[in-house]
Design a protein around this nucleic acid. Structure first.
Lengths: 248, 248
DNA sequence: CGGGGGGTTGATCTCCTTCAATCAACGTGG
DNA sequence: CCACGTTGATTGAAGGAGATCAACCCCCCG
């Protein structure tokens, strides 16, 4: 899972791991061929900046592998993470020349890039791309609004629990371990990054994680390993409406 | 500004006040004619529910006049406003049968509605609608993320100041009073609604509004009238980065 | 006149921040 | 191999911003 350089450059769209979820998901084979001609890959190291707020951004891209974050900053340096870019997620806004967020690589990140102008032209000529982008943007809007509820109204403990359920669900989806049994996964975020995401301090995050462990809701293996013996129990800690909306 | 019933029903798209900003903004005259055939108007009273989370929602709509809010709720009743629908804003998600939020009318609201199915078909046959919807959705996503920064990292005073700058700017844009001079406008929200939007309690909102008044940042005329002698001064109170990003 | 909705203000409490010390894991250079 | 610095994490003590509970005001309206 870590030697990406070897397999980096010559990926055919048809072999692409994010083929069916990314902005190109709806494309026909002949459309993919057009994309293949103008796409190019870029790799970003751990911690490296991908874009800075206000700077010119001449490409848009899909995350192929790795994790990147979107951040906004106040004048005095307080920061808030406003989005997480995971494999298949899209970065950049057609029609906008300048980045709206600070984007940086949390892990090593490989992106499938398109220069902005040619991509904008494709958008008008290939409705399948515009359609998919709309769908993805609506999903992100829903996610952002769910996060607004978390930031505005949840307690620290509920925030942690919510983040863990999201990460656990995502991990389960990737590893296809649909079965029951204790979920286990590795935290892809430091305590500081978690705090930044949740609108907390890293100390509070650390304390609440410890508290959840003490109460038997989660188990820690090492610093980054998380095991969840009873997912329903964790869900109860999120404060969310349980009865109604199973998302999807 | 209040006797909307008289002029309600027979609006031609070409005379529509939101013609150039709504989801139909990019439509050609012949496309408008198609819309005109299937659109219908609905009016909602002050406080009336427009949609409930989880309930079936068989139409999408543009706000023609009035203000509506989007809310999410936690199990124990804590609520967070996650969006404001103002004239020209769009409600509903093509491709989704069920409402994701509680939508309710803050003032009397007039909406220009389309049954969902026919609208979805129009989206595929009329790219100008899909394009415009994508643009509007991206704008909303930016707004939601800016709100995440506010909810996660700003102090109560900064939150109030931020909300006031937004409302003041919007009002200035509507009344076209671009000139200098003390801005004045009427708060369209109760203290409770403000609190709900800002992730605060109504008491804290009241206190911080009073504090801003005491400090001469704003002046109150009656309960709902706001005057801003020095807009720059108010901006300083928001905590935002002043140098960089003038939005638009 | 009574009542209710919206708003303000006060007293107290509490959850989270702030500041700080400590620890474990890891690498690096002497 | 060990001293040292660094990075991420945990834990403690103190303080504060905002929540909570409660009283009260104002104004409109029935």
């Amino acid at each position: 899972m870590s030697m990406q350089e070897s397999e980096l450059l010559p990926i055919r769209c048809s072999d692409c791991p994010i083929r069916h979820r990314a902005v190109c998901a709806r494309c026909e084979p002949h459309e993919l061929r057009l994309l293949e001609e103008i796409k190019y890959y870029r790799t970003f190291e751990v911690g490296q900046a991908i874009a800075w707020t206000g700077d010119r951004l001449d490409f848009v891209a899909s995350v192929v592998s790795g994790i990147a974050t979107l951040r906004q900053t106040l004048e005095d340096g307080r920061t808030q993470m406003v989005g997480l870019l995971l494999p298949s997620d899209f970065m950049g806004r057609p029609g906008r020349e300048v980045a709206s967020y600070d984007v940086s690589a949390t892990t090593e990140v490989v992106m499938c890039c398109f220069r902005r102008r040619p991509f904008e032209e494709l958008m008008t000529s290939m409705p399948s791309i515009a359609q998919r982008l709309l769908e993805m943007t609506l999903d992100e809007l829903d996610a952002a609004r769910e996060w607004m509820l978390l930031l505005g109204r949840k307690t620290a403990r509920e925030k942690i629990a919510s983040l863990l359920t999201i990460l656990a669900r995502r991990d389960a989806a990737l590893t296809l371990s649909r079965g029951a049994g204790p979920l286990e996964f590795t935290l892809p975020l430091t305590r500081e990054a978690m705090a930044d995401y949740l609108g907390l301090t890293l100390e509070t995050v650390s304390r609440q994680v410890s508290a959840l462990k003490r109460d038997g809701v989660i188990k820690l293996t090492g610093k980054r390993g998380i095991a969840i013996p009873d997912f329903g129990r964790l869900m109860l800690e999120t404060g969310d409406d349980t009865d109604g909306g199973m998302p999807d």
